[in-house]
Write a protein that binds this DNA or RNA. Sequence first.
RNA 1: GGUCGGUUCGUCUAGGGGUUAGGACAUCUCCCUUUCACGGAGGAAACACGGGUUCGAUUCCCGUACCGACUACCA
Length: 514
Amino acid sequence: MERKVRVRFAPSPTGPLHMGGVRTALYNYLFAKKHNGDFILRIEDTDQARFVPGAEEYIIQALKWCGITPNEGVGFGDGGHAPYRQSERKPMYRQYVEQLISSGHAYYAFDSTEELDEMRSRMEKAGSSFAYNAIIRQSMKNSLTLSEDEVQRRLAANENYVVRIQLPRNEEVRVKDIIRGWVVVNTAQMDDKVLFKSDGMPTYHMANVVDDYTMQITHVIRGEEWLPSAPLHVLLYRFLGWESSMPEFAHLPLLLRPDGNGKLSKRDGDRLGFPVFPLNWTDAKTGEQSSGYLERGYFSDAFVNMLALLGWHTSGNREIFNMDELVQEFSLDRVSKSGAKFDPEKAKWFNQQYLRLHSDEELADLFAASLQEKHPGIVNSVSRDFLVTACKLIKEKANFVHEFWEQGSYLFIAPEMYDQEVIKKRLNERSMAFVVAMKDVFLGLAEFTAASTESAFKQVAEAQGIKTGEVMQLFRVCLTGVAGGPALFEMCALLGKAESANRLERALATIKTQ
RNA sequence: GGUCGGUUCGUCUAGGGGUUAGGACAUCUCCCUUUCACGGAGGAAACACGGGUUCGAUUCCCGUACCGACUACCA
């Protein structure tokens, strides 16, 4: 019988979740939804020393913002497998470690950190690398080399110890990866990894396998950095007698830095001029700030869409997918094998696409909210209709809502400065007279629309024997101060008769004295 | 160093034994708009290299190079 698909995202709360982590979560989510399965958020906080306050909350908030919502896990409710924090699951690991020891698949090791370090550096000096393996372990202090009595004595004396897996000396381990096919590693190349630390906590490997098994995880979808330890995990399933319900593995390609080498890391921060985090983050210790996609003005669906396409693609040319469509289309065997360099320019493009997808009304809401922060007076000074129409005019030119203000503040505030180049080029007796005439004609217009202002403009030009091209730019600058912008007469209509005329008059006065 | 993984335009990718190797971002040119943007048209731009297998390889196999990950009582 087919098991119900259950996948998990298992970050450790050692800092904010970066976009690579978000993508891993996303792929897990998409896979789960696609197969009507469960998506679980598990917090892997077995390393007490690296715990960062606030990181867990950040992870939850980030997933929520992205719409990647687990249906089970820390912050998202109990699906019958609580707790979902490994620190709270601590008591359940012990029994499995003991099971491994009694079945001869693990052993106690009493070597101190100092002894290990010394050993390591001595061997490295001699030109060979140190690995606590089937050969080396014979000359170390562990329950394989020490007498039974000695081991019991040390344990009774509460000496520090770890538990290590006991690997076979020379055996091929085969891992089937959905994305990469079979990966074969010989145990001779591996080492007896620590499963249980001296602080009483399991290591990642142990906790991960036990939790995936007990939580009935069917597919482990995680970053490629875990591929080297996948054989170890396979061995753990085998030694624990769980091989028949072992999950399938899929190791995702890494997200690479845009500027060349290395995987995209948390430490990159804003160094390269783009956020690596979904949300802003302030390091409590150093006070260092890192910006997030949310605060930079990205739509979450644009961010998610962009991330989805970094390492996954359909056979067609389509690039715009909302979350439902991603779920529909997603498939692990269309995930690419090679790492993807992240391109900030393309990220902007995605946002632009989503900006267009939003209605003028929605954009007005967003714009109003962003104005409320920086220019609270402005929002209250204009009508809802004005704002909606303004958004309609500006949105074609912007990638982000926050650019609306930079690109269209003149719709709200009459200009103080006028584009000097245009004035130099187009200001003369004739054009000045034209603007003066236009002001009066505007004032006399019964109906003040884009169409009526435009035809008035043309009539005046004709009457004065002037080509529209000669005065169009100057007229625009008089109205808005700048040379570029939305359709001229649409703007006139938006500004209204009085304001338009006022601006023309003011421009005339200002420019003359300049 | 060792192990594992990867390699199609600058970037993300489609494709796949016989193709003018397709799309998108970025870039360039032109058109539209007497503005900017959008849009439209077009240009430049890629199968890492060497050997096999084959009538034929960018596609399959091997090697080399390069890139990356891992190599902690971190995840």
